[in-house]
Design a protein around this nucleic acid. Structure first.
Lengths: 211, 211, 211, 211
DNA sequence: CATGAATGAGACTTCATTCAT
DNA sequence: TATGAATGAAGTCTCATTCAT
């Protein structure tokens, strides 16, 4: 019987501890020793599994972002209307936050929005997501479903900007959180970006959504 | 003639130098001595005018953000359609970037997007802008011009998120810059947020804008 | 008529302010600007009258210490018993404290007891006082009034040590202060050093003093 | 054999080096790097064992002062005349100086006499010594051995003042040092404080002491 | 005399990373 | 793997002093 698998994967323990510490204290404010303490391992062991403090955050980001990229890709492969695609993407991100708000806080606050530090490092990776969304938009434009005077790149930026801003709002308590709010947000993001804020003729003044 | 005004306002010289240094190296990466060197003043003089490196960035942000808040307020006071109000606000921010991209880079990248450090500190001030925009949205909803199923807070977030993301795109060269692009962006932001990405019936497939 | 005498002697104003600031914050903790502020004069004026922060304290010490040296000298010139001489010296110091506790706090705490900084600088001057007291002791020993197995130097040190410790006790609230306590202290210092703590035969168990 | 104990206790090495550096240069004048250099360790190791430069001095003082307090306590527990108790205490302090003059210089000059800095911090601890001595005096007064018109607090202050002044005299070369002088001092301190400077009837003019 | 802006050396402390065991 | 002691570079802030007006 294999004895090679340790009872606990210390590397994983350290990564999970890092999420909590980064979320609580912020990447720059916390020390490597804080992570080791939180993980309950010796100082030096962190450097056994990771070459630097940066690499820990990089690892956390890449792990999660790849899941996101795959999710978008999978959504894009489906034969559904563009509105449903964008709804699925918004849903995935919102549900990620609902499921593990600490991890998403770290991804958003310490990487995605930290434009000048990790954001810069991972710009190509972040851009992949933009590009995938832009591709979705572009195809819908060619199909005549989306208007063509808004460039796909711009549309992707606006969509992602809205999603990121909403998550930031939750993280910093500018927006109320809760199951109802998460579901509402998915709908509102898509409605705003696809339908626009303006009331259309024939639209009911306070149109409810059809769940 | 009054001789009371000094030939050069060293405080201003330091602030302007700080903008260049922060934009070039980033707030955390630069040293106070870099600012002093760039300003051509002695190290200690920085601390004669400011109590800390943080206070320099705070000052730059507050100076500029107050101008923005006043601009939004002034826009809100005018008797024009909501779409024009949002266009005016987007224009103001885009023009701010066109006029002084280094300063706006610092405001956006080092403060607004630095969610966990300065962003947190200035959250109340940043929120004022959100709230003013939300108020504009709310009024338009009551007038029946904007749909009411998107909450004003959410709409403000989406609008500001789009603007911020576009500026970030320029700053990090994800989007092309230039006079034409700046003007285009103002239009696209408003079109996307107000009109929505979806092509409406009767809308030309690739509707140009009427300048 | 002479116009040479200014309405206020700024130099004196600065010195008096320095006493209050040194007493309140301590020499090392206070800044030159604190002294200027307390004196109500411009920063630079302090350096017009004094070459350094040190010189201010030096001046305060030397002014006061010379008064003490003259007082001891004058006491020594009188034809009175040694016990009365020491009582007069103790009285002079205690009364100095009563009259201007802030100044004496500065002299004692910042100079006399600051053995490694100003104390070292002014050791020769401080030693003059020891020597004068030693001379008084020596003469009394030759007259057979004081015992000769205690060297004059040692006796002077013990006497001055007791005085300094009592003042330190008042300054740091280890001993109660007040008119009664000041008078009592003069008596107790002399009684302890001259008479000794031991109860002598024929002495009443709780001998009061004859005022 | 246990290998758990390191060959050299670096913490101790740093403390011992600090004594030499503090004694040589003074606490305020020396830099942390001087201590590290003297100890032959890296700069940062000092901060591995101590949170600040202050804490090093605090540690040195408290280590030594606790030894003194225990010594006094032990002396007080013995069934010997008060004069012998005070002699034992003076002996302990004088022998401490003889054994490790650098350490005692640091304790006296940088802490005990630094009334406004460390002295203030450790006043409660210093006071414990005063109080223990005062207790010894008080008991002797009740037994009728010491006069009662000098309060125990005052007597303790005078005794400790004499001891401290003598050590200060040695430290600053106001008094000659040497084996003979150290022994002499123990005797003189007690003679002066207990017996008083005045020649008693029947006392030989230049009474030697019976060793 | 008077002002206060300008200078710049100096020192503490932090903490990521390395390494011997 | 695991430990945590050891390393040392880096940067902020202080403040006495100078100087131009």
């Amino acid at each position: 019987m294999a004895r090679s698998e340790p009872a606990v994967d210390k590397r994983r323990v350290i990564l999970d501890a890092a999420v909590r510490v980064f979320a609580r204290q912020g990447f720059h404010t916390c020390r490597v020793s804080d992570i080791a303490d939180e993980a309950g391992v010796a100082y030096g062991l962190v450097y056994h599994y990771f070459t630097s403090k940066d690499e820990i955050l990089d690892t956390l980001f890449l792990e999660r972002w790849d899941v996101l990229l795959h999710a978008i890709q999978e959504v894009d492969g489906q034969e559904i209307p563009v509105r449903e695609k964008l709804f699925a993407i918004a849903s995935f991100i919102v549900d990620s936050y609902r499921h593990d708000p600490e991890l998403m806080k770290v991804i958003i606050v310490e990487v995605t929005r930290a434009a000048n530090t990790f954001g810069r490092t991972h710009l190509p990776k972040i851009r992949e997501a933009y590009d995938q969304i832009a591709t979705i938009v572009e195809r819908a434009q060619r199909e005549g479903v989306l208007r063509s005077d808004v460039t796909p790149d711009f549309a992707a930026l606006a969509f992602y900007g809205a999603v990121e801003q909403v998550l930031t709002g939750w993280i910093f308590a500018l927006l109320p959180t809760g199951e109802r709010e998460y579901e509402e947000a998915k709908y509102l993001i898509v409605e705003t970006i696809c339908g626009g804020l303006e009331r259309k003729e024939g639209q009911r003044p306070a149109a409810g959504r059809a769940d």
